[in-house]
């Protein structure tokens, strides 16, 4: 059976170019993450003697910054930060959204009313300023940034999951599970969530792209974690040298665009493939 599901997944990937590009991109990012020490030419945390070297100068493929760090190596190691932020914050947001939205939709009644209002309150909050506030209050470690992105983006996932749960709980198999004596918790975890999670997965993948952007934005404002290498911080540090050493900002900016595009294509592709109307349109 596993084999069967894999072939279905492979067919889905093949049928949508966006999804295929996204998958290849994510694989490439993973390779960069794991093999960063092999691919990079230098340790990016070392402040070398070559300050503000241009492209190709002294063996620095993309030059160096004002502290003598190798830009090419920094970009390679920056993948780790971005992917970490994307995956962990999206997971937090996805898990919170699925649990809260699933419970609201499935239990209904007063629970649903209260949770829906909470979701609405969270949706109205100006997310970015809330993140700024929390980072300013609790310090700017990467962990804080990831958690904050996670807990400010879950309402979108919760709304999707709630809508799924609302329609699933009227299905016969949920009623029959109830008649077989299964508890509410079992029904939620074995029937509602596995059958309704697909739109949330697609949305979470799109959320990863936004998480990368948010982290870069925070770093650009000087609120990133200073002890790690991230693309946003490279731009932040490089912006004062933009006239004399444009390569610092330019290449890290391009890296952000590529990473965001990859996750966006993956998410959008998943969205399209999982849409039940998609296969009909093609057939």
């Amino acid at each position: 059976m596993k084999n069967n599901r894999l072939t279905i997944a492979a067919q889905a990937v093949k049928s949508n170019r966006q999804l295929m590009a996204g998958c290849i991109g994510v694989l490439a990012l993973l390779v960069l993450m794991i093999a960063a020490p092999l691919i990079s030419t230098e340790d990016p945390t070392i402040y070398g003697p070559d300050v503000l070297n241009g492209l190709g100068e002294n063996g620095h493929i993309l030059g160096t910054n004002h502290l003598g760090q190798d830009v090419y190596s920094m970009i390679i190691y920056g993948v780790r930060t971005s992917v970490k932020v994307a995956v962990i914050s999206a997971m937090i947001s996805g898990i919170l959204g699925v649990l809260i939205g699933g419970a609201a939709g499935f239990l209904g009644g007063k629970v649903d009313v209260i949770i829906s209002e909470i979701i609405n309150v969270f949706m109205m909050l100006p997310t970015f300023f809330l993140i700024l506030l929390i980072v300013a209050l609790f310090g700017n470690s990467l962990t804080n940034v990831m958690i904050v992105i996670g807990i400010t983006t879950w309402p979108g996932n919760a709304k999707l999951m709630r809508a799924q749960a609302l329609s699933l709980r009227e299905r016969v198999f949920v009623k029959s599970a109830e008649a077989m004596g299964e508890t509410k918790r079992q029904i939620l975890f074995k029937y509602i969530i596995p059958n309704g999670i697909f739109p949330v997965i697609a949305n979470t993948t799109l959320g990863m792209a936004n998480a990368i952007l948010t982290e870069a934005g925070l770093s650009f404002l000087g609120l990133g974690d200073p002890s790690i290498i991230s693309w946003g911080q490279m731009i932040y540090a490089g912006k004062q040298y933009i006239t004399s050493a444009w390569w610092i900002c330019a290449f890290s900016g391009i890296a952000i665009i590529i990473a965001v595009l990859i996750f966006y294509m993956l998410g959008d592709g998943l969205n399209k493939v999982m849409d039940p109307r998609y296969n009909k349109r093609r057939a």
């Binding site: 016969v172 198999f173 009623k175 029959s176 008649a179 077989m180 596995p194």
Partner: peptide, 13 residues
């Protein structure tokens, strides 16, 4: 126990 009308929807897919 109850047996439902629509057998195609009685079990989780």
């Amino acid at each position: 126990q109850i047996i439902f009308q629509n057998p195609f929807d009685t079990f989780t897919p």
